[in-house]
Deep mutational scan, measured.
Amino acid sequence: KRLSEREFDPDIHCGVIDLDTKKPCTRSLTCKTHSLTQRRAVQGRRKRFDVLLAEHKNKTR
């Protein structure tokens, strides 16, 4: 699936709103397109961004 077609989940996706499409970014939490500050500011996550990021990195090892 293309990035734009993915169902957005704030707990596994970057989530920064794309200015062109007005939709949240569906790249992983480790997205290189958006800064850490931008990704931390995303609302609606179950846990703090840093906790989710650490969990994500542990899963992908």
Results as ranks from 00 to 15, higher is better:
1 K>N: 09
3 L>S: 11
3 L>C: 06
3 L>Q: 11
3 L>W: 03
3 L>T: 11
3 L>E: 13
4 S>V: 09
4 S>C: 08
5 E>W: 07
6 R>I: 13
6 R>F: 11
7 E>A: 13
8 F>A: 05
8 F>G: 03
9 D>T: 06
9 D>H: 09
10 P>S: 11
11 D>I: 04
11 D>H: 06
11 D>N: 15
12 I>D: 09
13 H>M: 13
13 H>I: 04
14 C>R: 01
15 G>W: 02
16 V>S: 03
16 V>L: 01
17 I>C: 08
17 I>Q: 14
18 D>A: 06
18 D>H: 09
19 L>Y: 08
19 L>V: 09
20 D>P: 07
20 D>N: 06
20 D>K: 06
20 D>Y: 07
21 T>Q: 07
23 K>W: 10
24 P>H: 09
24 P>G: 06
24 P>E: 09
25 C>M: 01
25 C>Q: 00
25 C>I: 01
26 T>W: 06
26 T>V: 11
27 R>L: 13
27 R>Q: 15
28 S>V: 09
31 C>F: 00
32 K>P: 10
32 K>C: 12
32 K>D: 15
33 T>N: 08
33 T>R: 09
34 H>Y: 00
34 H>T: 00
34 H>V: 00
35 S>R: 03
36 L>G: 03
37 T>I: 09
38 Q>V: 03
38 Q>T: 04
38 Q>D: 13
39 R>F: 00
40 R>G: 06
42 V>C: 02
43 Q>N: 10
44 G>I: 02
44 G>Q: 03
45 R>G: 05
45 R>H: 02
46 R>F: 05
47 K>L: 11
48 R>N: 15
48 R>T: 15
49 F>T: 03
49 F>A: 03
49 F>K: 04
50 D>R: 01
51 V>M: 12
51 V>T: 10
53 L>H: 04
53 L>K: 02
53 L>V: 07
54 A>I: 07
54 A>V: 08
54 A>F: 11
55 E>S: 06
55 E>T: 05
56 H>S: 07
57 K>Q: 13
57 K>L: 15
58 N>W: 07
58 N>S: 15
59 K>E: 15
59 K>R: 14
59 K>V: 15
60 T>E: 15
60 T>R: 04
61 R>P: 08
